[in-house]
C-alpha cells in the first residue's frame, strides 16, 4: 500500500521528484567535498555521482537513458533533458561582456574547425589501426569521435551498418563522459581559467553535454564562453564530416 502511494507520487510529480533527487545528490556531493576540504569540487562530485547512478541504472534496466529508465526517476529525463539544459545554458550568457566574445571570436572559429578535423582524424586513425578497411566504416567511426550525434547522422547518410553506427555512438558517448570527468582535473594544466581558453575548449571538445558538465565542475563563470562555441560544433560536424570528410577518406582508402 505504502509502496503504491510512493510510486504514484513519483510518477505523477515526476519533475518535482527529480528536483528533490538532484538536491539530495548535490547535498551529498557538497558534504563530501566539504569533508575533504575541497569545496570547489562539489559540482564535480555531484556529476560523478550522477554518472555512477546512470551506470548502475543502465546495468539494471538495460536501457539507454540511465536513471530516467527507472519509472520512479523518469522526471530526471525532463529536468536533465535537452530542453531545460539549453534553456539554462542560454541564461548563463547574461553577464557576458561583448568585448570578451569579440576578443576570442576568431580564435573560437579556428578552434571549431581544428576541433572537428582533429577528432575526426583521430577517430579514423583508430578505426584503421583496429582493422576497419571500408571507407564508410572508417568515416562513421571518425564521425563518432566528433560527437555521438555526428556519428549516427554520418553513418545513416553513408549507409553504414547498424553495428558500426552503434560503435560510433559509443565513441561519442565515451568522449562526452570522459570530458565531464577529466576537465576539472586537467583544467589548471591546460590553462583553462579565462574566457578565451573556455571558448577554445568549447570549440575543440564540442560535445555539448561534456562541455556543459566539464565547465560546471571547473568554474561556472566559464560556462557561457565554452557553451557558446560548443553549440556550433555538432552542426559543423554534420556539415563537414559526411561530405568533405568522407571524400578525403575515400580518396585514401577507396
Amino acid at each position: 500500500m505504502v509502496a503504491n502511494i510512493i510510486t504514484k507520487l513519483f510518477t505523477s510529480y515526476g519533475l518535482v521528484g527529480a528536483i528533490g533527487i538532484v538536491a539530495l545528490i548535490m547535498f551529498i556531493a557538497y558534504s563530501i567535498a566539504d569533508a575533504i576540504g575541497q569545496k570547489r569540487m562539489g559540482s564535480a562530485f555531484a556529476i560523478i555521482i550522477g554518472l555512477i547512478l546512470a551506470y548502475i541504472a543502465g546495468k539494471y534496466t538495460g536501457g539507454e537513458k540511465g536513471l530516467s529508465d527507472i519509472k520512479l526517476f523518469a522526471g530526471l529525463g525532463l529536468l536533465g533533458g535537452g530542453m531545460l539544459r539549453d534553456y539554462a545554458i542560454i541564461s548563463t550568457a547574461y553577464g557576458v561582456k561583448l568585448e570578451n566574445l569579440k576578443k576570442a571570436g576568431l580564435v573560437g572559429v579556428i578552434s571549431l574547425l581544428v576541433g572537428v578535423a582533429f577528432s575526426f582524424v583521430i577517430g579514423a586513425i583508430v578505426a584503421v589501426a583496429l582493422g576497419f578497411k571500408n571507407p564508410v566504416d572508417i568515416t562513421t567511426i571518425g564521425a563518432g569521435a566528433v560527437t555521438f550525434i555526428v556519428g549516427p547522422v554520418t553513418g545513416s547518410a553513408l549507409g553504414a551498418s547498424s553495428e558500426v553506427i552503434a560503435l560510433s555512438i559509443a565513441a561519442g558517448v565515451v568522449k562526452s563522459v570522459l570530458t565531464m570527468i577529466i576537465t576539472p582535473i586537467i583544467a589548471s594544466v591546460i590553462g583553462l581559467n579565462n574566457p578565451t581558453a573556455a571558448m577554445v575548449y568549447g570549440g575543440l571538445l564540442g560535445t555539448t553535454s561534456g562541455v556543459a558538465g566539464g565547465l560546471a565542475a571547473t568554474d561556472p563563470k566559464l560556462v557561457p564562453y565554452g557553451a557558446m562555441t560548443a553549440t556550433f560544433y555538432t552542426g559543423l560536424g554534420t556539415l563537414l564530416v559526411p561530405s568533405v570528410g568522407f571524400l578525403i577518406i575515400r580518396a585514401i582508402f577507396g
Binding site: 538532484v22 554518472l51 546512470a54 540511465g66 536513471l67 530516467s68 530526471l76 539544459r85 562526452s176
Partner: peptide, 8 residues
C-alpha cells in the same frame, strides 16, 4: 547538468 549526467 547533474540531472543530465544521471541520464547518460
Amino acid at each position: 547538468v547533474v540531472a543530465m549526467s544521471s541520464i547518460q
